[in-house]
Design a protein around this nucleic acid. Structure first.
Lengths: 204, 204, 204, 204
DNA sequence: CATGAATGAGAGTTCATTCAT
DNA sequence: TATGAATGAACTCTCATTCAT
């Protein structure tokens, strides 16, 4: 049975993920991707408008179609914002650890200054942001989290922290498990969000 | 009297910063940089080995020669780790706010998958990391900061948070001041490092 | 049906031969070659790794694949080393006369100081040298040629003489036939190799 | 005392000889030559019109001003054309052996297909040719040399043979003395010019 | 005369994209 | 739909030559 279109499209995406992860977007050529996919160069253009479009799609499908839905599902069981935060941390690390190539492409290659690539990233990023925001808001409603910090800033802290830890891991030899960072990262973030210090410079 | 090397070299770096910030490294050409600098293409090669070398130098000079020394000086007056943390936050935001082009290049272009570029960044990044680590350690010695979180993780949180906030600002229309984020970001980070949730899931 | 590789490759080689013959290797550009071949610049790189490789191939194909096999065939009928020497002279002049562009490239451009080019020529040159050496040895076995001169030196005389005559012709207006030199050159070389003078400085 | 013009001109020529011999004409840069000469790039243009002109001059001075006069002087004592031929062989090999860098430039680098370079070579070559021709003519008048071969062809044999031997030596590791070739080369050439094979294919 | 920083034309080469098959 | 040879714009980089000092 001949491969259907869906398969071939996916084939190209997987090949591109591999090649981008290995060499970087600008150092990768269409010929390389086609070669890894075992197809002709021209065939790629039946499925993607251009090279840039592959990267856009790769990002969009990974974040918007995989990461975010998976996270939503993973959060469903929880009500307590603290548990939800823990799950976000765990899920984030787990996701990228289980697909290091995707991690590399997302963390490194998508940070291109190409405007169109950034725009393709936006819906996925925004969905993720909304989930984090909802969690923070819920924590505030549950009077578990500080309420005098703009949600936006808290969210950037959460995302920035997770992102930084993953990026460091991606660029390392990856000989340690990302999951060992779940606990300390969670505790830091929970600390940050938990309201107790009225006067930060108190000397009690 | 002839322009000395320092002048011309600096001229090229400034032009490159501008062009890289506007178009991104890979989308920038030597001809563009030369044109902005008001010099001939070939002149650039009297001062830099190649295009990559310009980017490397830009990073190194900005982080290692400007950012880090400035931060060290800014931290000198302080003893209390909490004040030092505040100064780190303030300085970080202030630095990039006052040179948005540098910010763009540092925040975005540094995410290159070119190994040599990453390596050129390393000394600067590591110096910065050492300063943050020293601050955290000092806070722990002063029994101000929690001591049961690996310094490495705390540092990544701090850096990741600041980085994320700056990146968002850089990619935005920049119509708000980064300095408005000093307070909330500091409070979050201080909370993270000072709060103690012995039992994070307690329901008191 | 699409042109096959052989055609396009040959097309490029012929164009390069023409252009190199006219301007010399270093004064020839890829664009000129492509233009003469009636193809795009980039196409050349589908068949040759780089400009140097074209020159190497040109040498190799001309000497190793054309000149030497043709000479071997031409020598087959002969047993007497003197007839073989005559045929070498005749064939050498005939070959280059019938392809003056090849002659020019071989005679002039081969004097490149580029090591890789020299190395590409070696197999062809060595094959030719072996044929000449075999002829000389045969003449000595047949007691027709002097046996107290190193074969190596005799071969250099033969090759040097033919080469010099061709080079002069190539650089001239080529308004005379190389073949007029067959007889005198042959007679000189045969004289040189024929053993009769015991005392070179005799005054008989 | 400051170096006078003659010195500096000579300095440049010597530097160029060295650099050309080492890297080849096209692979050598003005900057390299200036550097070896210990002067500024621009200074070279006070003494030579351009890079090509240096090569032309180098050739001209070496052959026309050094090689040829030296040969004329070396030939003076001799009357017998055979001794003159011997001296030509000896002198030719001696000259290039004692200045291998000159040899390399003359044998290899001057064989460029640049028309103007070839033209600059002509007077020197022609002078040398005239000396060889005179020697051959003298030998014929003295009834020592065969008179039924065009002088032009004999001269090409002589020059081609010597040239080929020197070229091979230049391109070799030069671990043998060129002078070992004096005797066999001379004997071959003398044979060529003196033997008489009225019927070359006789079976006596 | 001497300098060497500045120049810019021109080189070789790459590679995303097209399109005839 | 699949192909991959062909393309040529665009790139980085070199270096002979100039000229203000």
């Amino acid at each position: 049975m001949r491969k259907n279109n869906g398969d071939k499209r996916e084939l190209i995406l997987q090949a591109a993920k591999k090649v981008f992860a290995e060499n970087g977007y600008h150092q990768s050529s269409i010929t390389q991707i086609a070669s890894v996919a075992g197809i002709g160069d021209g065939t790629i253009y039946n499925y993607f408008q251009n090279k840039e479009h592959i990267l856009q799609t790769l990002f969009h499908e990974t974040i918007y179609n995989q990461f975010v839905p998976g996270l939503q599902q993973a959060l469903e069981p929880y009500q307590d914002a603290r548990f939800m935060l823990l799950e976000i941390v765990r899920y984030h690390f787990h996701f990228f650890q289980s697909d290091p190539e995707a991690a590399r492409v997302i963390q490194i290659e998508s940070r291109q200054s190409i405007q169109r690539v950034r725009e393709a990233m936006r819906p996925g990023i925004r969905s993720y942001a909304r989930i984090i925001d909802a969690t923070i808001n819920q924590g505030m409603e549950q009077q578990l989290f500080v309420s005098d910090i703009p949600v936006r800033v808290s969210r950037k802290m959460i995302f920035g922290t997770l992102d930084e830890i993953v990026t460091n891991w991606v660029l390392s030899s990856k000989d340690y498990s990302l999951l060992t960072s779940v606990e300390p990262a969670f505790r830091l973030l929970l600390n940050a969000l938990t309201n107790t210090n009225k006067n930060p410079f108190r000397n009690e």
